[in-house]
Design a protein around this nucleic acid. Structure first.
Lengths: 239, 239
DNA sequence: AGCGTTCGTTGATCTAGATCAATGAGGATC
DNA sequence: GATCCTCATTGATCTAGATCAACGAACGCT
């Protein structure tokens, strides 16, 4: 089945939103929709950069590892996000599906060429890259200088923001419930901690009534301002 | 004195290398050369993004801090590097001169507009941003998962590469000497460690004849492959 | 030359978070 | 509904790196 950009669900949020109908037809010819099963890799660390893609459905993690197995999650990708390394010959990171996913794939050379001919598209790509750079730099402060409590609190706040437009429900402006799209090990790999430390910090927050944990995947933020205080300074004042 | 792009020392390495002589004259009108003393800030964390710039001379650090004074160095900037946040309204990070420096400053709105009219310039900017993103992500692995020994070794290797074209001297292909453009505290703030740990790791490397430290600022790499092994896996085998 | 002042090194101790180990709690399969 | 199997929690202990503290060395200043 041919992919059809006009009917694409991420058409208005992805970089493709820079394109007019004619251009959309042109880019349609360069693209191929691919399904990726949960756990399957789309790109391997160290690979030549042969493809780039838009995430259409699902979620991906971007990871970098040491030989002995230590892994750091460097980024998370959701529908409408752009994946891959244009204008470069190596992928420095692996991209792996966290859930069953669909992506819209381009050959990198085709994509590079198309982008150079469409400055508006290149502009969108630049804006995304700048935003991502801001985000990644923020996590450098987290990884380099924050305590475990601060990291977990920051993470929960960021996830609640990021998932705000999808599954998040705001009741009374203060009550937030969302489902993490992954397990404790992944949280640990995002925060540069161990699974045990993440678990202990979460139960600590639960004991202090800052959050509730209906089950292993769901998180409910009961006291956002308190969580914010913890994220910024780690202060856990007695409740 | 008017700045003159034609005679600019970073003309061929900065993003301005994308411009032809006519365009250079046009951009010249938007620019102003400014001297910054060591220790002085060019941009403050949280400021509105009102200016962007090219580094012409000297060195800068990009930092993010917590209220209690903990600081993380998020990036280093050298001549020909681009500074600031185009196409965004906030600077999330401070930019401070590490040495007496000169920059070529644009108003952000002027720059944004000029960039949109010059796709080649925007392309250069995108390439730089993508490269920087790769570099920053690499340091996420360092900050999140590497030990102190691995961090210091990785740092020395990266600095020797980065300074290769300036003060670095390669003798016999194996002997590298370079001067760090900053003190121990800054190294600690780059690596997410304390000054004491950095110091101890350096003396450890010295004792094992992996490096020599002629004085506090200079570093000589005696055994690059050993240093590389340490950077990757932290293994310190007895000498 | 003498004297602060700043910066780096070294040592002793402490602790946040890692590691090791056991237990518990769904969720799928037959 | 019993049996795995995977994943999260909890507890006990250990350790890398932080913290606290003293000392030393280089540099600028009078």
């Amino acid at each position: 089945m041919l992919s059809n950009c006009e009917q694409c669900v991420v058409r208005n949020k992805s970089i493709c939103s820079a394109l007019d109908p004619d251009e959309l037809i042109a880019i349609n010819r360069l693209t191929r929709k691919v399904a990726i099963k949960a756990g399957q890799a789309l790109i391997w660390e160290g690979d030549d950069s042969l493809i780039v893609a838009n995430v259409v459905e699902g979620a991906f993690k971007l990871t970098s590892s040491l030989e002995d197995g230590r892994e750091q999650i460097i980024g998370l990708l959701y529908p409408s996000d752009f994946v891959g390394r244009p204008f470069g010959d190596k992928n420095e990171y692996s991209v792996t599906a966290l859930a069953d996913s669909k992506v819209c794939v381009f050959s990198r050379s085709d994509f590079d060429e198309f982008v150079r001919e469409h400055p508006d598209l290149e502009h969108k790509l630049l804006q995304r890259t700048l935003t991502e750079l801001d985000r990644v730099r923020r996590s450098m402060l987290l990884l380099g200088r924050k305590t475990a409590a601060e990291r977990v609190a920051s993470f929960l706040l960021e996830m609640s923001e990021r998932l705000a437009d999808s599954s998040c429900s705001v009741v009374g402006g203060n009550l937030q419930l969302f489902a993490l799209p992954f397990g404790r090990q992944q949280v640990a790999d995002i925060l540069g901690l161990t699974i045990e430390t993440v678990s202990r910090q979460l139960t600590q927050l639960k004991k202090n009534d800052v959050i509730a944990l209906p089950d292993h995947r769901n998180v409910q933020i009961l006291d956002p301002s308190r969580l914010q205080d913890i994220a910024d300074a780690g202060a856990i004042t007695a409740h």
